[in-house]
């Protein structure tokens, strides 16, 4: 350590000053404790940014697709025309049941306009089936178990089932009295079956969502991303290119999960 025998007066003066401070109570030893809590805190401080254009598509079963293709999201509703392409080009696909129920889309109700065998109940065969129920103008007569509003505003005919007030368009989809699609994905955006979340460029600090040794995920799209991240880590650990996976795994290690 201090081997030099030749000290400048300035150097000695500096040391004397320090010794005087020591005599006055200044500690001569400074300890840097490598406490466990310090190391653990650093584990929780990691952050990551989700890559640009990243979106998450979720269906009603809890299956998820993560990718960067166009979805045209509006209010968590993806554009119908983009869904198939997005799914086909997804970089990551999670099986049904992965996504928490709060993020899942509502399932589309069974289409009463679709018979499951033929294309729909608006074709000529159906009309002939119910020909005995039509009046002279071709409208269906109100009979118990069937209904017909007559003169569909969108030019569609009317199908029939056991529910009152059900109307179908020319494509076999249920519509309301204004001809708007009901509970199906025939419009521009998916009303059911799929929900979409834009997580592009979101910066996430997962440690912010750890409380008392367990996850306390937020209810927003960041919470969804973290939920998928945890699922990914369970399957693949700190491998692959899932954005932020090393940060997630470090916290999982901290939580000993």
């Amino acid at each position: 350590m201090q081997k030099s025998k030749v000290r400048s007066e300035q150097f000695k003066a500096h040391r004397r000053q320090l010794l005087r401070m020591g005599a006055a109570g200044l500690p001569m030893v400074l300890t840097l404790r490598a406490s466990a809590s310090g190391a653990l805190i650093s584990q929780l401080r990691c952050t990551f940014t989700i890559p640009n254009s990243t979106k998450i598509l979720v269906d009603d079963t809890g299956q998820a697709w993560v990718g960067t293709s166009k979805l045209g999201i509006s209010g968590n509703k993806p554009q119908n025309k983009n869904i198939s392409k997005f799914k086909n080009h997804a970089q990551y696909v999670f099986p049904a049941g992965t996504v928490p129920s709060s993020y899942r889309a509502d399932a589309c109700p069974p289409d009463p306009c679709y018979d499951g065998v033929s294309n729909n109940l608006n074709d000529a065969n159906v009309d002939s089936m119910f020909a005995h129920l039509t009046d002279s103008e071709g409208d269906y007569q109100a009979t118990e178990g069937f209904s017909g509003a007559g003169g569909g505003k969108k030019g569609g005919s009317h199908s029939h089932n056991n529910d009152d007030h059900i109307q179908c368009d020319n494509h076999g989809h249920q519509v309301d009295e204004h001809g708007h699609s009901i509970g199906s994905n025939t419009g521009k955006y998916a009303d059911c079956g799929y929900k979409a979340y834009n997580v592009s460029n979101n910066q996430i600090a997962p440690g912010d969502y750890v409380n008392n040794g367990s996850w306390s995920l937020p209810g927003d799209e960041d919470g969804l991303y973290l939920s998928l991240s945890i699922n990914y880590a369970d399957s693949y650990g700190n491998t692959g290119g899932w954005p932020g996976i090393s940060c997630i795994v470090s916290i999982l290690n901290y939580l000993n999960l």
Partner: peptide, 28 residues
């Protein structure tokens, strides 16, 4: 494990895992 740095020394104590910074007096 002692690492001298000018007029102070950084000392790692293997038994405790703590690191200490000693001035010239305590290091001596």
């Amino acid at each position: 494990i002692v690492e001298p740095h000018e007029d102070v020394s950084v000392v790692f104590h293997k038994l405790s895992g703590d690191t200490h910074i000693l001035n010239f007096l305590s290091a001596a």
